[in-house]
Design a protein around this nucleic acid. Structure first.
Lengths: 260, 260
DNA sequence: GAGTGGTCTAGACCACGAA
DNA sequence: TCGTGGTCTAGACCACTCA
């Protein structure tokens, strides 16, 4: 299958080094590889991926394996297919699938975008209204973290997160610009997430918000409010976010309530 | 492939009558068949589906085809798999809040508001893009219903609904201003609703929309797009709505993903 | 050891789009 | 006509579970 005197035939496709029989399935490696391509192609002339047959040939794998990768990327909203024409990058508008606690970082990465943050504020405050939402004492210290969230360096959202400091002592002095806050909470502070409630509405961007997001005053922004619980039902975060509506969509899948 | 003197070999599996080379893909028919099984199994002792190999054998199709059906059902949250054990019905309480298909009328009534509608248009049209979304032939007649939705006489939303007319013949000459369209579809046309996918974003109100909603040009409106299916998975409506963001917001409760 | 889902192969035919 | 994605086949090996 591989060895032998083949004319070099090296990475026609960027990085042809798939690992067979490893712990990571081939289709999963192909997905990763396609995400890199997507990131490179983004904004360029041809926002089209190589055909499935071409990928299969170049990577020396079966077309069905390539298809499994492509199917997943379609489901994640990263690409779309047009029968008879090919596979193309999805519009840059990000659609967040609501149906689990999705981290901004994960969401962007899935789309082939590079997430980053600009930390605007990280302080300990007391606020009895927020305290009530987090179900802690009114004078208990609360971490307030304001971040501008970017994708490929472009502003996507402005986010204010509130957490009871007792759940994550020392958080405010950690690096909050790199990586995912959720990842920190899970890994360092061993928090296990449960359910969350979100509401979504829209409003006209106020001057300060508009400036940060790169909009002009009054342009529509999506406003998301989220209250999240740990798996034991205790509230752990209250988040208020403003998303650029021209770059962000929310998606929900409604399962029918079942009755006989 | 089918004709000829084969020993009958009929429906071992309840309804084994898969149609080959028809317009409906085999895996799609298998999904439908599995949904029926799921409905029957629900609440019973063994909430487990037959193994993929067993289904493939009984239905006389390839296991990969069965798998495509199962994969889809996993993605839709209807079942889950446990390697080495089998395929099982998903827990019932995964049902997203915002329960089932929320009818505008029901929603308003729940909040103590009096819902009403002003019918703007009710016509039979053909539109191949909408037809594709509804998975009907491009030239099949489609009902297009545009309504202004009011609560206590105040404009709340502008709604354009598309339905395949074959599912609801005569609908366009019925009273669409009073009562709920969903109620009509269920009661008169005996449609049973299934899952739906919604996306939500925001945009600046265009002049015509703004006038109808009582806004000034450019004020933010929530844009909701919904595709709904019957309980057999067939699409039955495609709706595009514009909501006054100052009077409406969407709420979602996120249930943590289940495992083991 | 038998059965299960997860992955993978190397083909095939179809409908469709573009040239 | 040729290339594309969409579907389908009839196998295969793996890691895992359960008896």
């Amino acid at each position: 299958m591989e060895g032998g005197a083949r004319l070099v035939s090296l990475p026609r496709t960027g990085k042809g080094r798939l690992i067979r029989r490893g712990p990571v399935p081939l289709y999963s490696q192909v997905k990763e590889l396609l995400r890199e391509r997507i990131a490179r192609l983004r904004g360029g002339e041809h926002e089209q991926l190589p055909s499935e047959r071409e990928l299969a040939r170049d990577l020396n794998i079966s077309r069905m394996t390539v298809r499994q990768a492509v199917r997943d990327l379609i489901a994640e909203g990263a690409v779309y297919t047009a029968p008879g024409r090919g596979t193309f990058l999805a519009t840059e508008e990000v659609t967040q699938q609501l149906g689990g606690l999705t981290s901004f970082s994960q969401e962007m990465t899935k789309r082939g975008l590079v997430p980053s943050s600009r930390l605007l504020e990280a302080e300990s405050v007391t606020d009895h209204e927020i305290a009530a939402r987090l179900r802690v004492q009114p004078d208990e210290p609360i971490a307030r973290i304001r971040r501008l969230r970017l994708a490929n360096g472009e502003p996507m959202a402005l986010e204010t997160t509130h957490l009871p400091l007792t759940l994550c002592p020392g958080l405010l002095s950690m690096d909050l610009e790199r990586g995912s806050l959720y990842e920190l909470l899970q890994r360092v502070f061993r928090l296990r997430f449960g359910a969350a409630s979100q509401t979504i509405t829209a409003e006209a961007a106020r001057p300060a918000t508009a400036r940060l997001l790169g909009l002009t005053d009054g342009e529509p922004v999506l406003v998301m409010e989220r209250s999240s619980e740990l798996d034991n039902g205790r509230p752990f975060e209250y988040v208020l976010s403003w998303y650029r509506a021209d770059r962000y969509h929310f998606a929900v899948r409604l399962v029918p309530s079942r009755q006989a």
